[in-house]
Amino acid sequence: MNATAELDIQFKDLDVVYERPDTLTDARLHYCPGCGHGVVHRLLMEVVEELNIKDRTIGVAPVGCSVFAYNYLDIDMQEAAHGRASAAATGIKRVFPDKIVFSYQGDGDLAAIGTAETIHTANRGEKILVVFINNAIYGMTGGQMAPTTLDNMKTSTSPFGRNPDHVGHPLKITELLAMLPGTYYVTRVAVNSPRNVRIAKKALLKSFEYQMQGKGLCFVEVVSNCPSGWKMTPVESNKWLEENMLPMFPLGDIKVPSDE
């Protein structure tokens, strides 16, 4: 018996404890090391697989770092114009209400250029899931100021720190959306620790289940990091997130279903 055959037997005898879900492609992620996008992609697809809805799920990717999300999620996907993912998702869900539809958007996409679409999609109570990745920066274009950039935070377009007198304070759009009667479930999670990853997955699972039950709009903000844009190591960025992002964007449910 040669060494390879021996290994095969050993693998057969082992239990699989961790593998790539069928709903993720085998493609290599283009995200920077330590970025939260990869984790959220995986969580989303784990949930889609567990709920056995991959045959009727349609995702809408944004413009931003996750513009290529469709390269990794092995489901039908659309790539929308900058800020318009929730409008495209509305179009899909309205004509095909039996489909499971989600949009996946970053802070610039959702809370700056797409603010009107975001608010009105939520206000209409579209029966979709909106996943909002908030890393307080424009990652794709090289680290410019985002609507959620923290006060005094340095970016390439706020090189002396965000000056609220000049450009206002960070926009807490999730709290704003929770005020609208159209939103059904609004929560804020993070993926900076194993515990938070588990909580995030639970929020995504609940959101898809609500959609399957025909409930209103579910909104999951994921406070994420951007090691490259923040010019930190992945470990430093997670620490910085904990110390700076979370006080401004506290984790937890902001609106829970009123009929539960």
């Binding site: 495209a88 509305t90 179009g91 004509v95 679409e117 608010i119 009105h120």
Partner: peptide
């Protein structure tokens, strides 16, 4: 027919994008 008054023409055309992309006549 699904008829929806959108919040703007920008939203309208992107709803068209989504629905047409999903195969509907819009």
């Amino acid at each position: 027919m699904v008829v929806l008054q959108a919040e703007s023409e920008i939203a309208s055309i992107n709803m068209i994008y989504g629905a047409a992309g999903a195969g509907a006549r819009v």
